[in-house]
Nucleic acid binder design. Structure first.
Lengths: 260, 260
DNA sequence: CCTTGTTGTTTTGTAATGCGAAACAAATGT
DNA sequence: ACATTTGTTTCGCATTACAAAACAACAAGG
């Protein structure tokens, strides 16, 4: 299956979008390698459909609002939880542990969906449940990719409440954990909030490379150790990557700390 | 000029992007009102061109990477300064004052381009020049639309250095000015940095409604008063709106203070 | 004023492609 | 097993896209 006109249109749009400065008719003809009359027709169509806009004063072409609308709408509408479900099921089938998906909400993480392990622990985790960022794998995975500035202001004033003897209570140690996330691609929590729970968490990114959600694997201590979970991290990261792709996301800028 | 297939394709993409959860073949057929076989063909083409991706497990369709690439590229490549130039010239011709365009850089504003008034003041402003945010119209216009969190962290530690007797040195007063911007759509600076300079500034937004640049009108005190400049603010805002449109931007979310 | 070059627009006959109805196939539910 | 929903393919006709080439608009230079 092929459509010549659509293919050419996309080529033209790509050329227009890649230009460092808006291009004129002739430049577009040259850069696309397409026939003059073809470009003329495509531009007319593009303008009509608002894929392209024409700056009549400078006689150059820019991307039109329609393209931006598509992305905006997609972003508004997408329901991470619905999109991630398949990967969650896959992980669940693979390892028979708890699988959850969460999103940030201030200094907490909110869980949107929970697949209980078959060896259930009685529904301790439920959708809507919240956890502080400092003692959850999810929190670490999310914060690890925040710009430094935002991170600072989030954590300034945050008290690292102690829940277990393993809870991280110092900013220093916490930042160390964030570095671990950036190096390994997943966050971990080994009984830092409850005496028996441990989990790992991988971030899902949006199209700007911002971490906007996390996929988590959870279990209880006697049954699994952190070593066990770390063996699952490869598949977890794969799933998170897949969801990232489904929502048009891209990997993170490793240069955290850039201005906004 | 029209192209049936392109029109239909866009309609389909719009439907796909607007869905709250990814749609199946039949749902797309229903929502677009197009013929089954047409959608089938368009989906095949869309997948081939990466406009659409198919989640084979759940049998639903999502927007493809190609669409996101277009927007990403456009964003990378666009040179605000080049795009804004026409509007700058228009304002310059209209009022014969200094016109500049600037972008944020930490707690400063950097000016990318400067059109000197004919009654020049000797090239005080030059491209590359920087100014603190707290005593420039540009700084106010930019910061007014930052999320509270980012704003807090930017300003925490910022010392409101006094340059003139009119310089704003209190956080309270500064926040009042930001509120003025959100109400009126432009920022102002009446001799807060130099004894004789005054200016107004309107923000340019990106496609997420974030203020990413500003368009400014500047003059010197004996020649213009803030009252004079405020009369120009309508045209200034019009120009800023036009540039916002050219880069695919949208107006701001007035709900500042949401989590990033 | 005319030439020459650059840039953008329109025409045209031909070839390719898109079109939707309807037949077909596959999966799903009862 | 049957009915229903869901997805795929076929097919003849009509529409549309195609590129070359002619045409138009404009500027620069002689």
């Amino acid at each position: 299956m092929q459509s010549s006109i659509i293919h050419k249109l996309l080529k033209m749009l790509a050329v227009i979008s890649e230009a460092t400065s808006p291009m004129s008719f002739s430049e577009i003809v040259e850069r696309t390698g397409l026939n003059k009359s073809t470009i003329h027709r495509l531009l007319s169509i593009g303008i009509e459909e608002k894929l392209v806009q024409f700056d009549s004063h400078r006689k150059v072409y820019l991307l039109g609002s329609c393209v931006f609308d598509l992305v905006r709408n997609a972003h508004k509408g997408y329901d991470i939880q619905a999109i991630a479900l398949d990967e969650m099921v896959r992980l669940y089938d693979l390892y028979d542990v708890n699988v959850t998906v969460g999103v940030p909400s201030g200094v907490e993480v909110v869980y949107l969906r929970v697949l209980d392990s078959r060896q259930s622990m009685g529904g301790v985790q439920r959708p809507g449940m919240r956890e502080p960022v400092h003692c959850s794998a999810s929190g670490k995975a999310l914060l690890a990719y925040y710009p430094d500035k935002v991170l600072e202001s989030l954590l300034s004033g945050h008290t690292f409440e102690r829940f277990t003897e393993r809870t991280i209570t110092s900013l220093e140690a916490f930042k160390g954990e964030l570095a671990f996330v950036r190096e390994n691609g997943f966050g971990r929590n080994d009984r830092e909030e409850y005496e028996t729970f441990l989990g790992i968490s991988a971030p899902i990114f949006n199209y700007l490379g911002e971490a906007i959600a996390v996929l988590n694997l959870w279990s209880i201590h006697p049954r699994h150790t952190m070593k066990d979970l770390e063996k699952m991290s490869g598949e977890l990261k794969f799933s998170a990557g897949r969801v990232t792709g489904l929502i048009g996301g891209v990997g993170p800028d490793i240069t955290t700390g850039m201005s906004s």
